[in-house]
Simulated assay, not measured.
Amino acid sequence: MLNGTVESIAKNTLLYSFVLSQPFAVYAGAYPIFENKTLLEAKELNYGDHGEAVRILQFKLNELSYYNDKVDGELGVLTEHAIKKFQRDHNITISGQADKETIYALIEVDIDNHLKRLERLSGSVYPGLRGEDVKIVQESLQYFGYYEGEIDGIYGPLTKKAVEIAEERHNIDFLDEAPKQSLSTMYESQKQTSTIPNTKQSNVKSVSVKSNYSSIIQTAYAYIGTPYVWGGTSPGGFDCSGFLNYVYSVNGITIPRTVSDIWNYAQPVNSLSVGDIVFYQTYKPGPSHAGIYLGNGQFIHAGNNGVEISNMGEAYWQQRYLGAKKIGG
């Protein structure tokens, strides 16, 4: 079933003949669907094997953080060890051989990762938008053979056509147009005031709450490892604000649904304390991600890898930090 799907996608794209004429170094990572086809045709890779299929295997294992050595096309001890680690994590007989079951599992993980990227960004890209998020969407659309244009970060006609195919085949809903208040308007507002724009008034009535931060943090810890799901609000899967909503509701406290509304609803703090909500500007101007501060520079949140603990000192978070607020008095 998987083999037929990959074959179909590969042969129905205009890039197929071009890619097959190029050396591995030219398209490694750029056209993953063709790498999948090469792996499927290899059927099984064993210790001592070498060639393009092995290089692709090493590349994919490296992308998934199982293989950290040189991608040289030689299936040696380190590659065999990486295969065993992957097999162990995916309940496959640990043999060190990239057999059919292992290759299929590797490709399924690859496909699932690209679908999750499309689902995660479906609510933040729209026709006319330019930027890194559009590039990520284009890369995943290209992976499935739906997009045949340049990865340029511009949501133009080719991207729109590819998005429509993805929506139909994978039941993903993208935005048809820009939000009523465009991101550029929000950005200009932010530059003029040098503060976070009050993008929307909260409908939640403000009440004085003496928050039991110990209980809230204990609840949050209980859901570490829960997968990230765009729009998720339950233990089956959370997005960042859905996670906060659930954790607070378990403790008898109602807060707004979106990060921007939580920002407007919460109370300012003079200094960061355990239990405060920390806010970040990620995929759009203004507060778009949040988590609960745990102390020692760490916070718990529903990130791309699911509910996890992250370090605020990491470059990614440090550069996007907006500030902290608290719920209640």
Rank of each mutant, 00 (worst) to 15 (best):
V209Q: 04
S184Y: 14
V209M: 04
P197Q: 04
N203E: 12
V204W: 03
Q190R: 10
A222T: 09
I196L: 07
N212I: 06
T199G: 02
T219P: 04
T185H: 07
Y223T: 01
V209K: 09
V207W: 01
Y213G: 00
N203K: 05
S206H: 07
S189N: 14
S202W: 03
K210W: 09
S184C: 04
K210D: 14
Y223R: 00
T219W: 04
Y213K: 13
A222R: 05
S206N: 04
K200D: 03
S211I: 15
T185E: 10
A220L: 04
I217H: 00
T193R: 11
S206Y: 01
G225C: 02
T199K: 07
S202R: 05
V204G: 03
I217Y: 01
T193D: 15
I224S: 00
G225Q: 01
K205F: 02
A222Y: 00
T199V: 06
K210N: 14
Y213T: 09
E188T: 13
M186R: 06
E188G: 07
I196R: 06
N198E: 08
S208V: 14
K191M: 13
S211K: 09
A222K: 09
S184W: 13
Y187I: 09
A222Q: 10
Q218D: 11
N212F: 00
S184R: 08
A220K: 02
S189E: 15
K205H: 05
S184V: 13
S208Y: 06
N203V: 07
L183P: 05
V209A: 01
K205N: 09
N203W: 06
P197F: 05
T185V: 09
Y223C: 02
N212W: 02
K205V: 11
V209Y: 15
Y187H: 11
I216N: 01
A220H: 05
I224H: 00
V207G: 02
Q192R: 12
N198H: 13
S202P: 11
V207F: 04
K200E: 10
Q190E: 11
G225P: 08
S194L: 14
Q192F: 12
T226H: 01
Y221P: 02
M186V: 11
S189I: 06
V204D: 03
S215F: 03
N212R: 06
L183N: 05
K200Q: 08
S215L: 03
I196G: 02
V204C: 07
A220E: 02
S202Q: 02
I217A: 00
L183C: 01
Q201E: 13
I196K: 05
S206W: 02
K191D: 07
S189Y: 06
N198I: 10
I217K: 01
S211P: 10
Q201D: 09
S208M: 08
I224T: 00
V207D: 06
S215D: 09
Q192S: 10
T199Y: 05
V209I: 15
S194C: 10
K191C: 09
V207T: 15
